[in-house]
Nucleic acid binder design. Structure first.
Length: 490
RNA sequence: CGGGGUGUAGCGUAGCCCGGUAUCGCGCCUGCUUUGGGAGCAGGAGGCCGCAAGUUCGAAUCUUGCCACCCCGACCA
């Protein structure tokens, strides 16, 4: 294996793929377009899951599990929804194999054809709303606040590890409410949960906003999203929260008896984030030495590398282990890399590739001097610290790194967000300085489509914190009340 | 699904035009010396050259078909 990664500037795609593979996160499966998430990659996802799950529970949600298979007829009940997903569904048509009479293998038994085909869920709105019909009769049953952790399948034409795989892991919340005020509030609440997670845990700044009609979820009234900027200047949709209105309630006939004795359709939301967040994490922070993980999500926060001469490992370990206990007592996850088969330099490089935020190198010489060597992954700085109170210092350092990584990403985004007023400026900005572009748009899907066709840039969102500002559309010159975020996107 | 590219040891590759059973590096194994930033020397193991058929005395190499992966496009969390 060559020792250095391709650099980001050389070939960002190659850099990303190599990073995912060499850091031991994931690889392509033998199955078309799917991925194998390796233990270290899964550990990151588990940590994300734990944090998000707590956030969902704090906001009153409960977990459930719904079927993997969706009868085909369910999918056709909501017109926009089927339109949006029909082109990327895996379909189960048979339930049995048999030995091939013509030779070695097995074939699909033509006699085992299903009466009604089953769709492998691309998302679970339909099967969940068909269930909600049974669960909801009265206003007393509302709100219904459900989440599920699941895998889904979307038969995309082109795949990319973590960002767009045929099968992916995610979380999908599906809630039902008595009023639109409530469901709209739920949609925004969950958007804020996602933004909180992205910024305070992933250390990744995001733009909160509303999707344009073109980019809206199939079957939603309104789609809210968080958009992040990657280091190659492309935007990545990192999470979505949909106000479904009464669309699914009407399609699946989910009505409730109101306090006043009436009968009304319920109001729905759905919201999700996926293993794509791991891809976002990688592309937002990593450098040419490997991953840079924010301490709050790093499976290993501190790695301790003993520096010793042959035969002295045991003696040194005995002196180091109490120090590791001090770190663990503070809730820090520590890996003691006492492998006798690798040399220190090799260990340093390997843990850097995996993005461990802090490394401690400890030798007998340090301990005799009551010091140890600390190295931080994000800045690659190294320094000696006294042994006294070292655990507290390390703990503080982890907090500092968390903030520093966020600040660095934020500074990058700000440096790569441009405001333009003309079509020429817009095109030049896209080619010369990729990133977010704030520009006026006349509000029509046709204009958005034309801009996309000519520049590959799309409207990432109408940011929530934008102040209204009259102007003219960069393409058509039509009137515009505000700027929107454009970018080329993943 | 369209365009382009690549499949040779665990990984990365040379060889292919011009057919003769496979090159080099990393990794792996053994030994010695090393050990505060990816160790050095010596020795060693490991391959039905993506799959299938064809041409040929003989195919990694030529022909045909298939498959997989990567990049670009269309599609998308």
């Amino acid at each position: 294996m060559s020792k250095s990664l391709p650099t980001r500037s050389d070939d960002y795609s190659l850099w990303y793929n190599e990073l995912v593979k060499r850091a031991g996160l994931a690889e392509n499966s033998a199955v078309r377009g799917c991925m194998v998430v390796k233990p270290y990659g899964w550990a990151i996802w588990e940590k994300m899951q734990r944090v998000l799950d707590d956030m969902f529970k704090e906001t009153g949600h409960e977990n459930c599990a719904f079927p993997l298979f969706i009868p085909k007829s369910f999918l056709s009940k909501e017109a926009d929804h089927v339109e949006g997903f029909a082109k990327e569904c895996a379909v189960v048509t048979h339930y049995r194999l048999k030995n091939d009479p013509n030779g070695g293998g097995v074939i699909v038994d033509p006699e085992a054809k299903l009466e009604e085909e089953l769709i492998v869920r691309p998302t679970s709105e339909t099967i969940i709303w068909s269930t909600y019909k049974n669960w909801i009769q009265s206003y007393r049953d509302l709100p219904l606040l459900i989440n599920q952790w699941a895998n889904v399948v979307r038969w995309e034409m082109r795949t990319r590890l973590f960002l767009r795989t045929t099968e992916f892991f995610w979380q999908e919340g599906h809630t039902a409410h008595a009023t639109h005020e409530e469901s709209a509030a739920e949609t925004v609440q969950m958007l804020n949960v996602y933004a909180d997670f992205a910024e305070n845990w992933m250390a990744m700044p995001v733009v909160k906003g509303v999707k344009s009609a073109n980019e809206r979820f199939a079957g939603a009234l309104e789609t809210y999203c968080i958009e992040a900027l990657m280091q190659d200047g492309k935007a990545l949709q990192a999470g979505t929260s949909h106000d479904l209105g009464q669309n699914f309630a009407k399609a699946f006939d989910v009505q409730f008896a109101t306090k006043e004795g009436g009968l009304e359709h319920v109001w729905g939301t759905s919201w999700g984030v996926s293993t794509r967040l791991i891809g976002a994490l990688i592309m937002a922070h990593s450098d040419d030495e490997g991953l840079v993980l924010p301490p709050k999500l790093a499976p290993i926060q501190v790695v301790v590398v003993p520096i010793y001469k042959t035969g002295q490992l045991e003696e040194l370990s005995a002196r180091i282990k109490p120090l590791i206990q001090e770190l663990k007592a503070r809730g820090i996850s520590v890996k003691y890399d006492d492998r006798d088969t690798e040399r220190p330099g090799a260990k340093f490089a390997q843990w850097e590739l995996k993005g461990v935020p802090v490394r401690l190198a400890i030798g007998a010489r340090d301990l005799d001097n009551n010091t140890l060597e600390v190295a931080r992954r994000d800045t690659k700085e190294k320094f000696q610290i006294p042994l006294e109170n070292f655990a507290e210092r390390v703990s503080t350092l982890l907090d500092e790194i968390q903030v520093a990584i966020y600040q660095k990403a934020l500074a990058f985004r700000e440096a790569n967000t441009r405001t333009v007023d003309t079509w020429d400026e817009f095109k030049r900005a896209l080619d010369e300085t990729p990133g977010f572009i704030l520009a006026h748009w006349d509000g029509t899907p046709e204009t958005e489509q034309r801009i996309k066709e000519e520049t590959k840039a799309t409207i990432r969102c109408l940011a929530l914190n934008t102040v209204p500002e009259p102007g003219t559309c960069i393409l058509t010159g039509g009137p515009s009340a505000r700027r929107v975020h454009f970018a080329r996107a993943y």
